[in-house]
């Protein structure tokens, strides 16, 4: 681990390499990222939050397909699903006859994007960071791309107000809770989120502390470290009707049972896209999370 370059530097280098690789065979019209798709009427939306923003802008009539992470609003699930955002099939995307693609940064693979560009379908990548500015930036980027900047400015203002209110409310709670976000716990192995993750972002916005702030990314954690982290509450994603683990199941884990969270059986479960999608509903998610913490006396 100590051998590795600082992550942002590595990421930047990779972006440069990727951009170079991608733009080499491109025709000049689409080589720039800032392709003009403002007039597009058949848009494929890739990324749950991007799709949500399109709906929040009232521009959903211009969508013809979405990716598998776009599960909200319900109406979006009626659109054809072109697969997981990082494993797109170029022919699948082209089969819905799009005139533009709006996608979250990191969508791909690069080979698929190369074919799409060659087929003359322009795309705009929407950057993502896990904080307040990131959400507002996404809304503005989407609005600017599809030629709806005015609507986007209004939405951004509204979302900013909601976020600020929720964050202030969370701060006013006053107590600092240690929250452990568990991505999965298959076979007793607990995969928890460290810093730099979407979960870390939402925990901080809700005025709480990530109990696993000592490492970066999602990692499997050992039982003793789990006890040492002393989380006050466990945060998990609910997997829909009938698949959600109950508090009893979660705290059946011997080490989790030792923690303050386990002793008080404090478990919060929320929908994944709602909780860590970083879209227009994040303000509400922050308020819900904060309220849930307050209910538990945290």
């Amino acid at each position: 681990m100590t051998l590795l370059l600082p992550r942002p530097l590595g990421r930047t280098l990779r972006r440069i390499a990727l951009a170079a690789a991608l733009t080499l065979p491109a025709s000049p019209a689409f080589a720039e990222e800032a392709a003009d798709i403002s007039g597009a009427q058949r848009i494929v939306s890739i990324g749950g939050s991007v799709t949500e923003i399109m709906y929040a802008l009232g521009e959903e009539g211009r969508l013809v397909a979405r990716d598998s992470t776009s599960g909200f609003p319900d109406a979006a699930t009626a659109l054809p699903d072109v697969g997981y955002m990082r494993a797109l099939s170029p022919e699948g995307v082209l089969s819905v006859k799009p005139d533009a693609i709006l996608m979250l940064d990191g969508s791909g693979p690069p080979e698929a994007l190369a074919v799409l560009r060659e087929a003359g379908v322009p795309y705009v990548a929407v950057p993502e960071t896990y904080d307040r500015a990131g959400i507002l930036g996404k809304i503005e980027k989407v609005g600017e791309a599809i030629g709806a900047s005015d609507k986007a400015a209004k939405l951004s203002e509204q979302v900013a107000a909601e976020l600020d209110a929720a964050i202030d409310e969370a701060k006013a709670r006053g107590r600092d809770a240690r929250v452990l976000f568990i991505l999965s716990m298959n076979g007793g192995r607990i995969l928890a989120s460290g810093t730099g993750t979407a979960a870390n972002g939402i925990i901080e916005m809700a005025g709480a502390t990530n109990a696993m702030g000592v490492f970066e990314g999602y990692k499997q954690i050992n039982d003793e470290a789990l006890i040492a982290a002393a989380p006050d509450v466990i945060l998990m994603i609910s997997r829909g009707e009938g698949h959600t683990a109950s508090a009893d199941q979660v705290f059946a884990n011997a080490s989790l049972a030792q923690t303050p969270a386990g002793q008080n059986k404090r478990l919060i479960q929320m929908d994944g896209l709602y909780l860590i999608g970083f879209g227009p509903r994040t303000g509400a998610a922050v308020r819900d999370l904060s309220a849930a913490l307050a209910d538990m006396g945290l």
Partner: peptide
Amino acid sequence: VLGTTALSPVVAVLGI
């Protein structure tokens, strides 16, 4: 895994 960090010079040269 290491293409973004330790092996990023290799990725920079060889790309995809």
